[in-house]
Write a protein that binds this DNA or RNA. Structure first.
Length: 574
DNA sequence: GCCGTTTTCGGCCCGACTGTTTTCAGTCG
């Protein structure tokens, strides 16, 4: 059984949870959480690093002990430290930590006093009102646990960004009309452009006496008020999305925005920097003793710790602070950098609009070229094109280009990559196209070796241009297929191919860490809408957000090039 | 458990809200 980074991360998370219940040193617990995060965001396989004998302690947050445990897990699939914890504590007990309102102390009390080890046992104890008799618990706490147990399992989970957008926009509109409100902004993972958000963090400033907090909790989509005080409130919307709300003084806006944007790891790192300089940083400002020295803007907070402004999308403590200090922050790509789109469909396959409609829509978005890339024949459910229909469409595009102004339509295909790595159309058809987008739409279940070989072979095809949605994942619905992404990226460099960052909000494929890896390896990414209708070009902003999280600059993006420049890039070394 | 321009020990970010408390612990973000 190959051990993936996620497997090791899961073990570390479990160790952290069990240690927390045991009452271990909080910084030791944090070290395990931190290591789990590092592994998940690493982008490359730690298993391979172990096999190559690389020094894992070079990774931030990994010391000799954790490096040893990683190696142990890679080699044996087990971790003695976790096994030992399991001997002392029931394995299922960590589940209890996921119930809102239950932290390590209460879980430990429930276990020690009432021998509660599982969610089911807790449910019974709550029913029999045994929980409220425990010291530190009470009637209300027991009631809250009962409520939480009812919703437990139906868990809200994380929301796709595009879904959160719908609720966020309506709420922002409502809040912006509250009398006396000055600023309303969404911070948190939403502002960092994460592909999913667990909740919405809304930050406001308002004039004295403005009824922002009461208006917030009486918003008509609020299903439940979880808490509300003078400056902080928390609600559940009817859709299940949690919204955390803060009101801060105007002069604290920058410090508060920085803090509530996070990430947690980034905030901690910045506060630590402040500490080294004798500064205290909280959401109200940057303080030297009693004196506020910064905090009205985010820039002032960064400046106080000697750094330039760091864009929100980079704030994950993945090296952005070091880069900022060294003056090496990327100038991140923006939506306006995109000159074209290299992946779109029309009615000819499974799209909803004509070529002309798609071209006009792309042009109205400020794009100068658009590749039409229908599915190929094997994908019958999508009315994939055979060579004859493809030729007909190419003629149509030629005719259309003679009349179009301000936009050029490129001839392309989204050709299926067959199980053996062959392409679903003959060479003579592919050779006439401007763009050949290759994509996997079947056999997601191949072994890592075979899936990787399949993609490498497809990319070796002389006409291959772009690898579409390279991991095949659908957010929250389908896991990525198992491939060695570093080998794929290196093959792309060798062949002069691009990798796609697919803008469909269900996909957003590549993930940010692989974008960064491609950039580091010198491979260009194409930010493609994969539009199936004229409306879908709006999704490009999600791709841009993801690209920014992957440190991409305009120069790292294939379709930030003007068409003449792009054509040169497409002149492949065969 | 990690880390080091205060370096192998002694630190490790900081505050709001709730409930069970008579001044604070627990949880959460």
């Amino acid at each position: 059984m190959p051990v993936h980074n996620a497997d090791i991360a899961a073990i570390f998370e479990e160790i952290a949870d069990l240690l927390e219940i045991e009452g271990a040193n909080t910084f030791r617990i944090r070290a395990y959480h931190n290591a789990a995060r590092i592994l998940q965001e690493l982008g490359k396989d730690v298993r391979t690093m172990v096999q190559k004998g690389e020094d894992l302690t070079d990774l931030p947050g990994i010391g000799a002990d954790l490096a040893g445990k990683i190696k142990e897990i890679v080699d044996t699939g087990r971790c003695k430290a976790l096994d030992d914890l399991h001997k002392r504590m029931p394995p299922a007990i960590a589940e209890l930590l996921k119930i809102p309102g239950l932290g390590p102390k209460r879980v430990r009390a429930l276990y020690r006093e009432l021998d509660i080890q599982t969610v089911e046992q807790l449910r019974r104890a709550v029913r029999n009102h045994r929980v409220q008799e425990l010291p530190g618990f009470g009637e209300k706490t027991e009631m809250h646990i009962a409520d939480a147990l009812e919703t437990h399992g139906g868990g809200a989970g994380r929301y796709k960004r595009v879904t959160a957008d719908e609720y966020a926009e309506a709420l922002l509109d409502y809040l912006s009309r509250v009398p006396g409100i000055r600023r309303v902004v969404i911070a948190g993972s939403y502002r960092r452009a994460r592909e999913t958000v667990g909740d919405l963090d809304i930050l406001t400033t308002a004039e004295a006496g403005s009824p922002v907090m009461p208006r917030f909790i009486e918003y008509d989509e609020v299903a439940e008020v979880l808490s509300h005080g003078a400056t902080r409130g928390s609600v559940l919307l009817r859709c299940g999305l949690q919204v955390d709300f803060r009101v801060v003084p105007e002069e604290s806006y920058g410090a508060a925005l920085h803090y509530f944007t996070g990430s947690k790891a980034h905030s901690i790192a910045i506060r630590r920097l402040g500490q080294e300089l004798g500064l205290k940083i909280n959401e109200y400002g940057v303080f030297r003793g009693e004196e506020r020295v910064a905090g009205d803007t985010e820039e002032s907070v960064f400046q106080a710790v000697g750094l330039p402004f760091i864009p929100a999308e980079l704030r994950e403590d993945r090296g952005e602070i070091e880069a900022a200090r060294a003056g090496l922050l990327p100038k991140l790509v923006e939506l306006s950098d995109l000159k074209g789109d290299l992946h779109a469909h029309t009615k000819a396959s499974d799209g909803h609009n004509t070529i002309l409609e798609m071209a006009e829509a792309a042009k109205s978005r400020g794009l100068e070229y658009l590749a039409i890339t229908e599915h190929s024949r094997r994908l019958t459910v999508a009315h994939g094109l055979d060579p004859l229909r493809l030729l007909k469409q190419m003629d149509e595009i030629d005719r259309l280009n003679e009349t179009l102004e301000g936009i050029v339509v490129l001839k392309g295909i989204e050709v299926d990559i067959l199980e053996d790595g062959g392409l679903d159309l003959p060479d003579d058809a592919l050779s006439r196209l401007d763009i050949v987008v290759g994509a996997v739409h079947s056999r997601f279940d191949l072994s890592r070796t075979r899936q990787t070989e399949r993609l490498l072979r497809a990319m070796d095809h002389p006409h291959f241009t772009i690898l579409a949605h390279p991991s095949g994942r659908l957010i929250g619905r389908r896991e990525p297929y198992d491939v060695d992404m570093l080998r794929i990226i290196r093959k792309a460099r060798e062949r002069g191919c691009f990798l796609e960052l697919n803008a469909n909000p269900e996909r957003l494929d590549l993930v940010d860490t692989h974008c960064k890896m491609a950039k580091d390896e010198g491979v260009l990414i194409s930010l493609n809408s994969d539009a199936h209708s004229t409306l879908d070009f709006g999704n490009l902003r999600y791709a841009v957000g993801q690209a920014r999280r992957g440190w991409l600059e305009a120069q790292d993006v294939a379709n930030s090039r003007y068409l003449s420049e792009l054509r040169q890039l497409l002149q492949r070394t065969l």
